[in-house]
């Protein structure tokens, strides 16, 4: 630190201190199954043995019962937009052109919605209850990552009734 009054210099206000740390993430047993499913173009969820709810992506436990989810369930490629927002803010690491739709999608047969990208429709045309389907990357590009799902797009079916998904909001 320099004394601004005695030297006439500005005090040090900012120092750059870059931090770079690499991590090896562990997906976990349940999520590994899910990721392997993605690399085959399938959504694999898990069912809680107590409350029988189906979770996708599975984390290995039922969040309300605190017990391992054991039964594997293959889910549909289609689902319903329960709610959504239009993202219009640029941020670091963003790979999608703004504005885009970030939606909660409830796959048919699942009991919890997950976040997905909606494309192939104008942002102002998206609706709660809209029926959508996953668009997968070409088979040679499939891998154990959410990037295997390129996006979701409207199926063209009539919208789901609000009553049918309101408990998932």
């Amino acid at each position: 630190m320099t004394d601004a009054t005695s030297t006439g210099q500005e005090p040090v206000a900012i120092m750059e201190s870059p931090i770079h740390v690499d991590y090896r993430f562990t997906a976990g047993l349940a999520q590994s199954r899910f990721l392997k499913g993605l690399s085959q173009g399938r959504f694999l969820g898990q069912r809680c043995p107590r409350c029988h709810k189906v979770y996708v992506p599975p984390r290995g436990s039922c969040p309300t019962d605190g017990v391992p989810t054991t039964d594997e369930v293959e889910l549909s490629n289609q689902g319903t937009v329960t709610t959504y927002c239009v993202v219009n803010v640029p941020f670091q690491g963003q790979s999608i052109e703004i504005p885009y739709i970030c939606a909660q999608i409830l796959l048919d047969g699942a009991n919890l919605a997950f976040m997905g990208l909606i494309q192939e429709i104008a942002a102002d045309q998206v609706r709660m209850g809209m029926r959508v389907e996953a668009v997968w990357v070409p088979p040679e590009e499939l891998g154990p990552t959410m990037a295997s799902v390129r996006h979701f797009r409207p199926t063209g079916e009539p919208d789901a009734d609000y009553e049918s998904f309101k408990e998932y909001l």
Binding site: T26, G28, L29, A30, S32, R59, S61, G66, V67, P68
Partner: peptide
């Protein structure tokens, strides 16, 4: 190195055991 289980999967059996030892639940 716990390479296969995530945090939740590591913890669940421990929580289960600490409860079952004294016959309680959450």
């Amino acid at each position: 190195r716990e390479d296969h289980r995530n945090e939740v999967e590591m913890l669940m059996p421990v929580v289960e055991e600490v409860f079952s030892r004294i016959g309680v639940t959450k």
